[in-house]
Design a protein around this nucleic acid. Structure first.
Lengths: 242, 242
DNA sequence: AAGTGGTCTAGACCACGTA
DNA sequence: ACGTGGTCTAGACCACTTG
């Protein structure tokens, strides 16, 4: 089962990859319990300590979640014990407030050059493009354009059903079996266009914070492109560096 | 030496705090080697595994650095094996390029309300305020205003010596014994003022990315406030979320 | 009571760097 | 050759959850 030998990859790394693969392949699904450390150790023919070290690494990566006395679980996007927020916007007091959202439209199109490139799709692949406004305490603050490969989310928003939940990543997981695990964000300052200005109730040319996010699954496949244009009059983007 | 008992804090956590304290107090200085795991285990009357677990935690926090065959060292800001970059600006291809910098002035003032608040100083405490322009491949791109408590950096920039190094954190460490360990950043989009526009060779009103950074020591004392206003025409702020 | 993760120990062996 | 960190084992005991 496991490779062993001189100059080889450490056992706990191999186990980490093995467990990661099981989750990526959907053999263990988000929220479900995995075998106990002792059980895994027996199956793999290693000591409990080695399995433990592998699991510890995955817990630190937010892939698994341990619950003392209960067991170890595959992390998920449930709203309570949420995987993580991915939401770095706070109000001017530093409080994280989740906005509500109103979908403006949800259209099927061919990927633009930029979308195809960011999502690593062939040119003109079919995509779903959602546009929505997010409000913080009744003030429209963010304008989001979300692009998804049609092949992975084929039923999404069909039949004019724009009543999408606020927490899309939960939907991706439950409805389409796709768990977002990490995201790359690029931030720039831009000027509000006429379109932005109308929807966010601002003057044309107002500086906006543009967040271009590519969301990735556990195996680093890009599955969502999200471009947010955000008024930073009463909010800011918060990041802590170590 | 160590507290033990039921419901107590785990040993490895206590050791972690003990080691952290030694570094905070300057008993072990940046770049220097600490006693071996075996030595520490004997001194503290615990097993090597427990010391190891404590050290592992600090390595993950970038407080210590392990070198196989040599020993464990207190992390520092040396340019080669650098502690970390704290620099999230990249060019449009995603390459991290370190800019050069030109100091415009370095003045002794009383802290503004905002500066006193962010640095947790009493009102009107003496501070040093540095303003500098940073260029990426000869193009002026960032305008930085750096505020430091005068009490900690008393000799800095005295006698009109504005010839400050590009990597200030290295200077703080070597010259003033202050090691920056983490930083909180708040990002907003703002309009270029006349002042910004002149120095960055832009039009007034151009959107700029403003980064307000408070840099902290290991014991979470704020020691630097840095406000950067950055043109994002050819660069962006990069962040990866997990 | 039984099973799970969480802490801690003692010791073996390996890989690496220095002298 | 020696000392360092890196991996791995086997087993003890504790804390927490569930039946």
């Amino acid at each position: 089962m496991l490779t062993i030998g001189n100059g080889a990859v450490p056992l706990y790394i191999q186990i980490k990859e093995l467990l990661t693969a099981k989750i990526s392949k959907g053999e263990w699904s988000p929220g479900s319990i995995i075998p106990s450390e002792i059980q895994l150790a027996q199956e793999l023919g290693v000591s409990q300590g080695t399995v433990r070290k592998a699991i510890t690494g995955l817990v630190e990566n937010n892939v698994l979640t341990r619950k003392q006395g209960r067991g170890t679980f595959v992390s998920n996007h449930d709203p309570d014990r949420s995987l993580f927020h991915f939401f770095n916007i706070t109000d001017n007091k530093g409080h994280k407030v989740i906005p509500d959202s109103r979908v403006l439209h949800c259209r099927r199109k061919q990927a633009s050059r930029m979308e195809a490139s960011k999502l690593q799709l062939a040119a003109k692949t079919n995509i779903i493009r959602i546009e929505r406004v997010r409000k913080f305490s009744a003030t429209p603050t963010m304008l989001e354009t979300i692009t998804l490969p049609e092949s992975l989310f084929s039923s999404l928003g069909k039949g004019g059903n724009y009543n999408l939940p606020n927490t899309l990543y939960e939907l991706y997981e439950k409805q389409y079996g796709i768990t977002i695990h990490s995201a790359d964000e690029k931030l720039r300052a831009v000027s509000a266009t006429m379109h932005d200005a109308t929807l966010l109730n601002l003057d044309v040319g107002t500086p906006l914070l543009e967040i271009e996010r590519v969301a990735l699954t556990l195996d680093k496949t890009p599955v969502e492109l999200r471009i947010s244009r955000c008024s930073t009059k009463n909010h800011y983007y918060q990041n802590t560096c170590f």
